[in-house]
Design a protein around this nucleic acid. Structure first.
Length: 313
DNA sequence: CGTTTTTGACCGGCGC
DNA sequence: GCGCCGGTCAAAAACG
């Protein structure tokens, strides 16, 4: 997923220049042909080539930085996995009456914001409750919020009705239970609870699948869907809420929210650094999704060429 | 007045 | 069988 990121970033710049130079070429071929400005065009081409080289170099640098960043992230994630597994083992050893599903579900959630009962074969197969084995569509999503905010509200584009709240044993913060209130027949349920380790993170667990379209235009609060094949949290992805499996955008966002959290643990990036980083990532994602759209690139090319023609430079 | 949220009670599964 | 625990229900309260 990281590479896709890099690629789209590159695409954006390259496409831009591509179209720009095309537009310029069009200008020089058509309107300017036979006119009195041939030397400036040559000069301009040189400048553009120079600019292109500069941008290419910059992209290379950025790519390298991103690679290093990804490596650091992977390392951190592995370390975190180790820690979590150690913790769960310790708890299992000390407390005799552990609730296996609870512990495992939670740990998976925190590791990579991924949890799906569907694909985790051995554990789910060994579970005694047939109910749990039947309801396969389970996934989690995490939202970074203000730690002092106790609202337990995760905006994911759907309308939810709260039907219960409980304080669970392994987490001091209460867990809220929601049902989808849009369609009475919609079986989807959602559990929202603050992370025990990081109160600024809300963990939302989705069960089931929506049998209707997303209806709220989505004030999406930077929610990371996790998705192991479920459809509901996907709608909470920052950019796309289509019905197609979110292959590119959704996982990227998942990473996004973990990065700051992970870097917090190791070095010292502060919260102030975190927010602009997320914003930057969101911008990049929007750019990526836009550049993938041929209509947009065509429109962009037309706009640039129109601008260039209008300016006559 | 209808809808949503709150919250204590209840139920069922699980471990001992 | 008993107690613990998570999940759900439903009456009351709050809200728009």
């Amino acid at each position: 997923m990281e590479s896709a990121w890099v690629d789209t970033t590159l695409d954006l710049n390259i496409n831009l220049f591509h179209h720009t130079s095309k537009a310029l070429k069009k200008e020089s071929d058509g309107k300017m042909a036979g006119s009195d400005v041939k030397v400036p065009v040559k000069h301009e081409t040189g400048v553009l080539v120079e600019e292109l080289n500069r941008v290419s170099t910059e992209n290379k640098k950025l790519t390298e930085m991103l690679t290093v960043l990804c490596e650091h992230y992977t390392t951190l994630q592995n370390k975190y996995k180790e820690l979590v597994s150690k913790n769960s083992e310790g708890e299992a050893a000390t407390s005799s009456k552990k609730r296996k599903a609870e512990c495992e579900d939670y740990s998976t959630t925190m590791i990579g914001f991924t949890a799906n009962a569907e694909s985790s074969s051995s554990d789910e197969n060994s579970c005694k409750k047939p109910k749990e084995c039947i309801k396969a569509k389970i996934s989690t999503a995490c939202v970074r919020t203000d730690p002092s905010d106790n609202s337990l509200i995760v905006r994911d584009g759907y309308q939810w009705r709260k039907y219960g709240q409980k304080v669970t044993r392994d987490n001091p913060s209460p867990r809220a239970y929601f049902k989808c209130s849009f369609a009475p027949s919609c079986p989807v349920k959602k559990k929202v609870q603050k992370s025990a380790e990081d109160p600024s993170i809300l963990v939302a667990t989705y069960e089931g699948e929506h049998n209707h379209a997303q209806h709220s235009p989505a004030a999406l609060s930077s929610l990371s869907p996790v998705n192991g094949g479920t459809s509901n949290p996907r709608s909470a992805a920052v950019s796309s809420s289509s019905s197609a499996p979110a292959k590119s955008s959704a996982p990227a966002v998942t990473l996004d929210l973990m990065k700051p959290a992970g870097s917090d643990d190791t070095k010292k990036p502060t919260q102030q650094v975190e927010q602009p980083a997320i914003q930057q990532i969101l911008v990049q994602q929007m750019a990526a999704s836009l550049t993938k759209d041929p209509n947009f690139t065509a429109a962009l090319a037309a706009a640039i060429s129109g601008k260039v023609l209008g300016q006559k430079w």
